[in-house]
Design a protein around this nucleic acid. Sequence first.
DNA 1: GGGGGCTATGGGGGG
DNA 2: CATAGCCCCC
Length: 753
Amino acid sequence: MSEVGYSYLDELNDIQRQAASCIDGPVMVIAGPGSGKTRVLTYRIAHLINKGVIPGNILALTFTNKAARDMKDRIERVVGSKAQRVWAGTFHSLFARILRVEAHRIGYPNDFTIYDTDDTKSVISEIITQMNLDKKVYAPGVVRSRISAAKSNLITPKAYIINDELMAYDKMARRPLIHLIYEKYAARCLRAGAMDFDDLLLQMFRLLYQNPDQVREKYQRQLQYLIVDDFQDTNYLQYEILKLLTIYSGSRNNICIVGDDAQSIYSFRGATIENILQFEHDFPELQTFKLEQNYRSTQFIVEAANEVIHHNKRQIQKKIWTDRIEGNKIKIIKAATETEEGKRVADTIIEQKNRFNLQNKDIAILYRTNGQSRVFEEQLRRYNIQYRVYGGLSFYSRKEVKDLIAYMRLTINDKDDEALKRVINYPRRGIGESTIDNIAQLADDNDLSMWEVLTKIEFNNRSRKSIGDFVTLIRAFKAKAVKSNAYEIADYIARNSGIIELLKSDKSIEGLGRMENIISLLDGIKEFVEDDEIQLNEEMDKDKSLSTFLQTISLMTDADQKEENPDTVTLMSAHSAKGLEFKSVFVVGLEENLFPSYMALSEGNQIDEERRLFYVAITRAEELLTLTYANSRYQYGSMRYNDPSRFLEEITDKNLDSIISIHKKEGFPEPKILGNFRPLGSKKPMISVNPGDFVAADPKQIKPGMEVIHLKFGQGKVISVDERMVASIVFDGLDENQDKRIMLQFAKLQIVE
DNA sequence: GGGGGCTATGGGGGG
DNA sequence: CATAGCCCCC
């Protein structure tokens, strides 16, 4: 027996331990799904700290803020509270925090506003109008994504014009003036003291690039150990920033990237796997580790995932394997319509909860588009199953919440024209559209913000008094902001802007809901002010300003919101599910034109990415995986009939439950045997029941002592029936000591004569 | 300046 | 199906 005590490194397998303890020089970790990536990251950072590295010198970039928080908490369990001093967060949130200290160096106010996608589109839309361009040709959304793509590739407006490829593409798409819109948009944002999401990266780059002495060197010294999770989803610009922080004279190149090319699913926002190849080129002395053992999922799931991803050509060679050979095969459910799909998923959830003793939180429904959540919500409500929908319209994107926030934004940064336009006539104070247009035009002509126009120019039209009142109001808010904390200001604004008064007068159910949202926004700000959790480093710990609050919520996603009810079924997009795991996963809507999305099918080479997304979705499952599709569904007002997804065909029968084959040409025969899940751990074969011969009995006839047949469990004996119509039944194929509690109102049972 | 009703059109993923 | 944008009327 060794005298050396237990070490946290003992909890890792060989390759994990090597990856975690190789802390000098560049490291690349290729981590398959469920391969203990988070564990490696956690122990790597803990190891660094135990070796004497100061926590504040470690920068860990994660994909979500929640992932960062979870990671810090795990590290804390190993090294104690100093773990909280590690710089951990998303690229966007950490850079936003740095820019809040440094932005003045590159011409922005430190209290800059963050423009969300709506703000951006609205600015672009206004520019397009002013340029007299056709909004059908120059659709603001399309223009925005071109600009976003340019920024993600570090292409400035000047560089855009001389980029033949971009210009040729725009010309071909009959949008040759995008570069001009881009230029004007950038100028507008600067004038408004606003950064969009891409700017948080781009301006961070500029800051470091243009200030080598004062700033870059400071952060190079500060952030000596870089760890980048989900590196496959970083874009060119993000990588260039990482290089500015890492590559310099005397650097030890302590950068560790962790990723999986097979899980790259964000190319639509500029992510490129080229970064992995480039990394090998930029750091030739790097050490590579491949984590190939999957600890998450059973063999059927791992094998199916391998089968699917094998259809992609370009990938880093690896073989994901598991030793969890027990388990249930993958179940495919076919439904006639989207409603039936919802019903059958809800039924299966009830069944799984009963049979496998699952809680709601063990279960997730994953879909390709957020719009698919509705039918599942309806069916889960019918059964009174608690659920939570992630994504879609988040709290902070509700109109009334945005309205109040716009007042706060304007109070903090009066150059924020988008906020000003939102509130100048809300609640109505008689400043109409033409007046607002006039103000916007004056602002543009004189290169002023709209607020400057309001305060510096004498208005002689009939809006004059209204404008004066509005200016007085905002000035009062600004005065209040000087001497109060975030909650006091917000409360003051809510009361004095007229928003609360307006909402109170609306007695409809929706109106009450809106009022509740305003109250919970204020509660949220109060909580923010009173929260004593340590954040990042001391310099920023005590910053409870309204400005910090606004920044925090701009970068917050649904997943970052605290859970009110911890035991809920999770409904989310396959994208949002990245990094998560559940005992039972339903991947729904597996149809051509939906998953894979028709956008991917029509625009050519995006099938591989859809397949990676499907790969991500199915590898979230630990034990039970159910794939569903509907023959028809309502899409955009009309009934659509889609073929089953090609991805279903890529899983071979040996990993599929029952004998379902999908023959596209011949239609889709009913499966011969409906699901025959085995309970986890059971080795007994199930009795299968042919649904064709099955006749369900009236639930009221089911009495104790009867022999019954259940479509999924096979034959069994009814032990008891209670007043809620819940029957206790012992099934022949299952563990005889373990009765199943079947809800008769849902289950269909045939009585054996 | 404000509100209501009609028509055309979009159509994904998210920080 | 949703909703943005438009026109028309008060």
